[in-house]
């Protein structure tokens, strides 16, 4: 049974935000608009968190691309009163939009604040409807959404592999953000499979996880920048 995980190399990352936009495109994330932006209500499954420190001329900046950590022990799933978010046997933490009652308890329980709420009815101009990804359902107003590790891609890949009756290969299942990254900073794969790059990278001395002390056991690892 695979344990899907991600490694993000902060030394490669240049904060270009391609991953954010690719995720919007892949997952039909609605455009929330200027007012939402002013209220900090923009929906973003992947967000490049920027930490700027210091004073001119000693200024340091760190870009931290932040998807859902797909915690091995997710604080968010336990608190959901209706089981609208749950972790599956392969370690992917998913959302069931048709089940969610919009209490936002999970969002509060997530120590990484990666969950977005649909404060308003998402609106897709008529001319843009054809560009919706048919593999991903759009979300109604009033529910929570977040990074799903592009789970639908796994399903497609599985089908494909079954059709060609062969085992699933490492590069069969790559999330949109990892695929687009111009510096290949994002690597994805099965943490339990020694042949997968992620499994080797997490052993790198530069590897760390966010808020490890909380014991949530994120499956998204980072490699520190070399400075």
């Amino acid at each position: 049974m695979p344990r899907w995980g991600m490694v993000i190399d902060l030394d490669r990352c240049n904060g270009c935000q391609a991953c954010e936009v690719a995720c919007r495109s892949e997952n039909n994330v609605p455009v929330c608009g200027p007012n939402a932006a002013a209220l900090n209500r923009t929906i973003s499954w992947m967000r490049v968190v920027t930490e700027v420190e210091g004073e001119w001329p000693e200024v340091r900046t760190r870009f931290l691309p932040r998807p859902c950590m797909h915690c091995e022990r997710p604080p968010c799933t336990a608190v959901c009163p209706v089981g609208a978010t749950a972790i599956d046997e392969e370690g992917i933490v998913g959302q069931i939009y048709a089940r969610c009652i919009g209490c936002r308890y999970c969002a509060n329980a997530c120590p990484y604040t990666v969950k977005s709420f649909n404060w308003r009815r998402p609106d897709y101009p008529a001319s843009t409807l054809p560009m919706l990804n048919p593999d991903v359902s759009t979300r109604p107003v009033g529910v929570i959404e977040k990074c799903t590790f592009c789970h639908h891609r796994l399903q497609r890949a599985r089908e494909q592999a079954r059709v060609e009756n062969r085992p699933l290969r490492e590069d069969d299942y790559v999330p949109a953000c990892a695929e687009v990254c111009p510096t290949s900073a994002i690597v994805f794969g099965d943490l339990d499979n020694p042949n997968h790059r992620v499994a080797q990278l997490v052993k790198d001395p530069r590897a760390f996880r966010l808020l490890e002390a909380l014991g949530t056991q994120p499956k998204v690892y980072y490699l520190t920048e070399s400075r």
Binding site: C80, R99, I101, G102, C103
Partner: peptide, 25 residues
Amino acid sequence: PVLDLGRPDRLLFIILHGQPWSPLL
């Protein structure tokens, strides 16, 4: 809390799909 729900129409789910682990339940 019902006023606070994003989907009040799904209120009954708390009973239909109640998830005993949740303090809300």
